[in-house]
Structure formats: structure tokens, C-alpha cells
């Protein structure tokens, strides 16, 4: 059930990000208002970036797992192994991405 809950949370996370981005872009362009720029700083913060990368990667990889299970129902009896495999794919990709983000933050790249 954890995978299902995380899939919903990460989906909502992406909706929040895209909505904030659209709202802030619109108001920045139309009015150049300060609070529109303030919204910009929310999703440009490094913590939000860590969160959104988690959302995109987890949602994508979990989605691939669900598609595989839907297309090949025989795989459904190996769902636990599939979930572990999913984490095995997710952790190195997410870890490497976070490493690069922190490295760029420190070096100012």
C-alpha cells in the first residue's frame, strides 16, 4: 500500500509544482508583482527541488512498474520482488541526481 500512497503523493507534488510555476510565470509576465516572484523562490529552493525530483522519479518508475504488471499479469505474483527492483533502480538514480545538485550548489555551477 506504501507504493500506492507514494504514487498519489508524488502525483500531487507534481501538480503543486506545475501550478505554482504557471501562476508565478503568469503574474510575473503580466504584472511583475513581488508575490509572483516570491512564489518563484518557493519552488526554486533546494529543498523543493529535492522534493520535486523525488516526485518525478518515483512517479515515473512506479508508473513503469504498474504498466509492466498490467501488461503481463503473470508478473503480479512477483510484486514484492518488482517493488524491491523498483527501489533498486530508483535509489542510485535519485542519489546521483541529488549528489550532482549538491555539488553544483557548493561549486556554484
Amino acid at each position: 500500500m506504501l507504493a500506492w500512497i507514494l504514487h498519489r503523493i508524488t502525483g500531487l507534488g507534481m501538480i503543486v509544482f506545475v501550478s505554482l510555476h504557471v501562476i508565478s510565470s503568469f503574474f510575473t509576465q503580466e504584472m511583475g508583482s513581488d508575490w509572483a516572484i516570491a512564489i518563484n523562490t518557493v519552488y526554486e529552493s533546494i529543498y523543493f527541488q529535492f522534493f520535486i525530483v523525488f516526485c518525478v522519479l518515483y512517479h515515473g518508475i512506479n508508473g513503469i512498474r504498474i504498466i509492466i504488471l498490467d501488461l503481463w499479469p503473470r508478473m503480479l505474483q512477483y510484486q514484492k520482488e518488482m517493488t524491491w527492483l523498483q527501489w533498486l533502480v530508483f535509489v542510485p538514480i535519485y542519489g546521483l541526481t541529488i549528489f550532482i545538485m549538491i555539488q553544483k550548489l557548493i561549486t556554484g555551477g
Binding site: L69, D70, P73, R74, L76, Q77, Q79
Partner: peptide
């Protein structure tokens, strides 16, 4: 294997 049975029905 209930989810598997449902998966087979979907297919």
C-alpha cells in the same frame, strides 16, 4: 493471488 486474478480479468 488475488491481484494476479484481477490482472488476468483486466487482460
Amino acid at each position: 493471488q488475488i491481484t494476479k486474478a484481477i490482472g488476468e480479468l483486466k487482460k
